[in-house]
Every structure is written in C-alpha cells, then in structure tokens.
Design a protein around this nucleic acid. Structure first.
Lengths: 339, 339
DNA sequence: GTGAAAGCGCTAACAA
DNA sequence: TTGTTAGCGCTTTCAC
C-alpha cells in the first residue's frame, strides 16, 4: 500500500502551491474558479482525502461539538440528539457523543475525555455534575449548554424546562379528572436527576392539592416497559386504594397499562395512567396515554441553533439568551379521561 | 481569559522535559512512579487538559472509529451502537457517528466527511453503497465492517445476517401455524435495503410454500407504529382474505395489532401478526408479538471486539474471520399462536 | 488571486 | 528512566 497523497502532492501535480490547494478546499476563500475546479478534480483522481487532524491543529478549530447523554435507548434523548445533529450537520459541525449511563462520575470522566478532543462547544444533559466536571466545563472556555433541565446555578447556557413543574401540572390534571389516590412509578434516586425531579414535582403537587399519594420505586434507570409491568403488579398486590398512577416515562406507563389489561382492570375507569415524554406509543396504545410532550426534538434544534449562532455568527454573541425555556405540553388522552 | 497551559508549561512547572510529561499521560510508557504522580497532580492544579488534536497529528492515530447508521430513532440500530460503544469505550476508542437517513448518497457524503477525521476503522450499516463510497472505503486503508447484512461482495469485514433468510423462516412459521393468505407491511424500496431484503425473503418463501400473498407498501423508512396502524386499516378496507400480516418491524406490527383491537378483530385467531427486531414492545404487548431477534446488541459487541483485535491486537490480525454470521432467533408469541 | 515562511502542540526516533 | 531533535500536514500571516 503506497502512502496516501497529501496536500503538497496535489499541489505538485496541479502545479500550484500547497496554499492554493488549501484554499480550493474551502468554500469562502479566494481562488480562481478554473484553478479550484482543476485542483478538486486532480485531487479526486489521486485519491486525496483532506486531513482534518492537521487542519484542526493548525487552525485551532475542530468543528466538534461534544454531547453527553444518559443513553440512546430512550427515544427522548435520541430525538434531542437528532434535532441537534440536524442543525449542526448543516453548519459543518460534527457530533462527538458520549454516554454517561445516568452516572455523574462517568459523566465527569467523559467530559474530560471529550475536552481533550478540543470541541468548540459542549452540550450536557441535565444540570447536575460533579464539582470537577463543573470546573472542567467552566475553564474549558467554550460555550456549554445544559439541556432537559433548568439548573439553579447553570454552568453556561440552558435549553430546557422544569421537570418538576411539568409533573405538577400532570397531577393537577389527574385531580381534576377525579383522582384522589395517586402513586408514582419511577426509578430510584441514583443517577437519573430528571426522574428525581419529576418525582419531586409529583410529591409537591400531591401535597399541595391534599391528595393521598405513595411512591413505587423501580431499579436503576433507564426505566423500561417491563419495569412498568412489574411496578403495576406490585401495586395490585399491595391492595391499597389507587385510582391513578403517574409514570416517569411513557414506556413504564405502557407496561402499567398492559398489566391492568392483563388483570381485567379498566383504564381509565378504575385506574388512570399517566406517562411522560410523548413517545409514539402514547399515541398508538389503546387507550392512548395521557402524557407530557417535552418537545425533545425542539430542544435539540434550539440547542443547535444557539450553538451555530455562537460559533459561526460573529457579532451579537452576547445577545444570545442564556436560558431558553421550552414549555412542555400536557397531552390528555384516553388513559386518564373516558371517551 | 489567559491562554490554556500546554504540555511545555507543565514540564517547566514540574522541572522535567515535555517528553516526560507526554509519557506520564500514557499508561504504558516508562516513567518513574513518583515523577508521574507529581506531573499529573501539577497538571491538574494548572488546569492542563491534554490536547488530542496535536497528539493525533503527530502519532497518526486518532482513536476514532467512524460509524454510519440510518437513524438512531429505531432502537435496533441504537442497540448496535450501544453494544459497539461498550467495547470501544473500554479500549479508549471514540465513536464518530453519522446518520445517513436511509440514503446512500447521504452515506457517501458522510463517509467522505468522516474519513477526513482519520478514523482508525469504519463501521457501516448494510452492504449497499455508491461506487464512490466503496472506492473511498477501500482506498482508505483502514478496516471496514459492514453490519446488519451479508453483502454479496463485501468491502471488508462483515458482522450480520441475511434479512431475507430470517423473513423466510418467519413465513414458514406462519404457514405451519395455519396461515394461507399473507400480506407484507413495509416501507418502499428506496433507501432501506434491510427492509427490501426482508420483503424479498417474504416473497420468495411465500412462493416456495405456494401461499397466497400481497404487499402493502408504506412511505419512506423508518416505519413507525402509526404507519402500521394505517397499513392495517388499508388492509381491512380492501376486504381481501387475509389471515396473517408480516411487518418489517415490531413497531409497525404493534400499530397493526392495535388497529385490529380497535376493530374488534381477534389476534391471532382471525389475523396473525408477525414483527421483526425483538423490540421491548414485542414482549410487553398483549398478546406478545411473534418476532425475530436479530441480536442487535450482539452485532455491536462482536463488531467492537473485532475492531479492538484488529487495531490494538498486534499479531494474528490475519486470523480474524472475515464474515461473522450472527444467527437471528425466531421468537414465537401470542400474536401468531393461541395460548 | 497566489506564494513563502513559520509553526499549531504534541510524540517518533534516537541517544544517554 | 529521561532528554533532544525533528516533524506530523495543514493554515496563519504577510508579501506581492
């Protein structure tokens, strides 16, 4: 295998300086149109592939945007990543993805690893990080966006919503639909701060509205359909009076729904079921699941637009909003209201 | 904002040469234990962050593994990516992800972009690429793995299975369960070659077994739950004799199932429903969906192990199998067999 | 519109 | 175990 050609080889073959080849490979710079075409054509014939690693070092710009998310096997975050990538790809930016697996220590490790790659911006999920992770983010000097949360003390920019408030609105809906004895199905405290926030919001609202409530903890996140089945089964075994279950996600809610159907318990007449996330299943299940649409895709889109403005836009960077609130939408369906 | 420290700054502060600092930041090389600790500690205090971009250029190793997948909003590919990342992360390799959106031209564009980043290996989904994409892959000189398929003329390594054969086995099962009039629900030809392969397998098996069959095309992939609903509704409107529907994925199958339930059609007694992919929903739905488990996670794991062996393992690289067949498993459940 | 010189921050290769 | 020298392949900067 012969060594792959470099820019200098192309330059020699065309009969120009390497600098002209370099310019030809970028849209904006000034090269004669005929020269550019000739260069690109000969480069293609030679099998030349532009080397970003050298470009990155010299120009001190990598075109990377690093993102840490808990997991991709949860379509909510996957939607956000998709929405983010839609915008970034157009701007020629490349995602650098890391999975924290709902663990802040893993997140810290990942943030350090990712910063070594010299991303031009960093997007993290949630507003809860280790002290060292915060320090790394702040001293990196690049724009940082926290998503899916409204942290009390943000590191940089924020694109998200209050998980607690959203769940509060769900509890209000259930009360007005007639529920008096509620239970919350969600993962344990460890790791999933979004889930914990939703539980806090549930508890706060239940207290405020003087509703009877309890909590049905599951294992570690991500909470799956099967765990919704298991939790609902436990609830039935406990034989407490229950007329509404609030689930940390639509997946658990669907599991709970099928367990009700398996036992011949009518939803919503005997038990109401509420989810979170506006997954496809919420629409397609029978009955449909009442849920909260957090606008996952829009969170990604807005984050992407913010970053492109920050990185590529020159002037009014300071004018960018620091906190971008994406208001979730309550979507009422057959799992809480008879049709 | 002062300029961030570089390796030379750390070296000066510690009183050693930059080379020693460089060595201290890698596990394998020889540095005095005391020296290493002192270097790492002072580096941390100074807020030094290792610069991979420089390292990559000089060492000609990036630690990147590039991956192109059609979409992440399909848990099958997401599982494969997760399985791949599990292995790569352990080996210190970083995923570089690109979304083709089921479009070979987009794939070509993406492959070119990704190769510029000088990945050490490339993983692509499927065995169908543009000529130029193939050329780029071959002449890149790095290991290439095609997954989720068994291409007739592979570019490099293969980790996958025959989508057509798997669907054939499903049709055999339906026949033995008593089905005589089958229809296939799947996306159109464009883009999703896995889906097209499954349809081919369906048609071939139906012919071989002399079953009556038809095709119910949907729009572009990815095929969602809602499209399964729509397709099933169309099938009922057409009033053809049908006793089994075979869906390109479990998501469409679940949509079809709910449409049957909406119309009071008994599954499996009046209509059998089969899916593909062993999504969570196949287990949790009522009745459970008969499906094919393609072992998405294992495809990712095996691919990761192959690459780690190829990249980090020194000796018996040539000994690696070129084609790794991951045999799919037929999982029979209540949607095709009465309980 | 094009070219020459210098150097981005690390590490390969060799020496001690 | 540690240090020295040179250079990875581009692009910045300045000159014309």
């Amino acid at each position: 295998m012969p060594k792959p050609p470099k820019m200098a080889d192309v330059a020699k073959a065309v009969g120009v300086s390497p600098m002209t080849v370099s310019r030809a490979f970028r849209r904006d710079t000034s090269v004669g149109e005929a020269t550019r075409e000739k260069i690109l054509q000969i480069a293609e014939e030679m099998g030349y592939v532009f080397d970003s690693t050298a470009s990155n070092l010299r120009s001190q710009r990598t075109g990377f945007v690093a993102v840490t998310i808990p997991s991709l096997n949860n379509s909510n975050f996957a939607d956000t990543v998709r929405g983010l990538n839609e915008i970034l790809q157009t701007a020629g930016l490349q995602l650098l993805l890391g999975y924290t697996n709902y663990d802040v220590n893993e997140e810290e490790r990942l943030i350090e690893q990712l910063l070594r790659r010299r991303p031009e911006a960093m997007v993290v999920t949630g507003g809860c990080h280790t002290d060292r992770a915060r320090r790394l983010l702040v001293s990196s000097g690049i724009p940082v966006v926290e998503t899916w949360d409204i942290p009390r003390s943000p590191v940089g920019y924020t694109v998200g919503f209050s998980n607690a408030d959203a769940m509060g609105r769900m509890v209000e809906h259930l009360q007005s639909a007639g529920a008096r004895h509620l239970t919350f199905i969600g993962g344990d405290d460890n790791g999933d701060t979004r889930g914990a926030d939703r539980r806090r919001g549930f508890v706060a609202a239940a207290r405020r509205l003087r509703l009877d409530y309890q909590l049905t903890p599951l294992g570690s996140p991500p909470v799956s359909m099967r765990e919704g089945v298991r939790a609902m089964a436990e609830i039935f075994e406990a034989r407490q009076p229950i007329d509404a279950v609030v689930c940390v996600s639509d997946l658990a809610a669907f599991g709970a729904l099928t367990e009700c159907q398996r036992r011949g318990v009518s939803v919503p007449d005997e038990v109401m079921i509420a989810g979170f996330g506006a997954y496809d299943i919420a629409d397609v299940a029978l009955p449909g699941l009442t849920t909260i649409d957090a606008h996952s895709l829009a969170i990604g889109n807005r984050t992407g637009e913010l970053l492109v403005a920050l990185l590529r836009g020159g002037t009014d960077v300071a004018a960018a909003q620091t906190v971008l609130h994406i208001e979730p939408t309550l979507r009422i369906s057959g799992s809480t209201v008879s049709r």
